[in-house]
């Protein structure tokens, strides 16, 4: 559908002669196209959210508004268990990945290494590696090392893929800060520790908070990698939803997914807010990944 729209658009070159309102027509076409793209992206999610409030058990029929599916979730022991697993994994991952990634970014910023570019690329590369490869390779690693699959392996896996994002975001913040402010602090008598405490840390903290939120969200949402490295009693929310879907899409799943979507959007918006905080206009425009 998307492709079709694009082709259609290209078949109407903008310089085509249209005597009456060429400008107007072009705008209307572009507007329609934009709406189609937005619908393509968000309609499925809207439908899902809508049916999570549907009174009927059958998705296709709308029989009235209800919040009972959300209440039903609270009574479901397995849902709560999965939720607890997901949250504890996400919190642990966030703390460890943020600290490790921030330290790595500071090291890359402060010191000059041999093969500096190579080191940088090695940090960024995992962003581009397909999840399925990452999950598979981690599974092979864990079985080679005879580490039993469970929450610990999921946390390790989540840290592995989050680390790159933390390094990228904090590095961007450090690059924007430059070295002069740290030098100024040292010039004014601040020891390296005080320089970090009073100048570096406050200035990069928006980046640290942003990457923490992103890490939390990614950990909460991850399915593919978790699927490979999870064990008994370590079912996360996405894994639980996947298990339910095999038996058909129920309104409970819609409700659960809606909650997940809302949480995700909230955290992403907050992460963007912190990432952009106090930065100059030109650094705002560059995306972290």
């Amino acid at each position: 559908m998307n492709n079709h729209q694009t082709d259609h658009h290209h078949n109407n070159p903008p310089h085509r002669k249209n005597r009456k309102h060429p400008q107007n027509l072009r705008h209307r076409l572009l507007f329609g196209y934009s709406l189609a793209v937005l619908g393509f992206l968000y309609l499925p999610i809207l439908v899902l959210i809508l049916y999570s409030f549907n009174d009927s058990r059958i998705n296709a029929v709308w029989s009235g508004f209800t919040g009972k599916w959300y209440l039903a979730l609270l009574d479901n022991r397995r849902v709560l268990e999965a939720l607890f697993n997901s949250l504890s994994i996400a919190v642990t991952t966030t703390i460890i990945a943020t600290i490790l990634g921030t330290l790595a970014a500071i090291a890359l910023h402060r010191y000059t290494f041999r093969f500096q570019k190579t080191w940088n690329s090695l940090f960024y590369l995992p962003i581009l590696i397909p999840d399925i490869l990452m999950g598979l390779s981690l599974l092979v690693l864990f079985s080679q090392l005879a580490i039993p699959l469970g929450k610990t392996t999921i946390i390790i896996a989540h840290i592995t893929f989050s680390l790159s994002f933390v390094v990228v975001i904090v590095s961007a913040r450090l690059a924007g800060m430059g070295k002069e402010l740290e030098e100024a602090a040292q010039d004014l008598g601040a020891s390296p520790l005080h320089t970090f405490r009073y100048v570096t840390l406050p200035l990069i903290s928006p980046g640290i908070i942003a990457s923490a939120m992103l890490t939390f969200t990614m950990s909460l949402d991850d399915f593919v990698i978790s699927f490979f490295v999870s064990g008994p009693n370590s079912t996360t929310l996405p894994l639980y939803i996947y298990g339910l879907v095999k038996r058909g899409v129920s309104p409970e799943i819609n409700a659960l997914s809606t909650l997940l979507i809302v949480t995700t959007i909230l955290f992403i918006v907050l992460a963007e807010f912190f990432r952009r905080k106090d930065t100059d206009d030109d650094t705002k425009k560059q995306l972290p990944f």
Binding site: E183, A184, A185, D187, L188, G189, L203
Partner: peptide, 30 residues
């Protein structure tokens, strides 16, 4: 940080997260 001299940087290098007073007092606080 142990040399008894101070520098005025080309691009000022003022701490953006502090107001004027805190910037000026930074050295004395340290």
């Amino acid at each position: 940080y142990q040399r008894d001299m101070n520098m005025v940087f080309q691009h000022y290098a003022l701490f953006p997260h502090m107001n004027v007073t805190d910037n000026i007092l930074f050295g004395l606080k340290m």
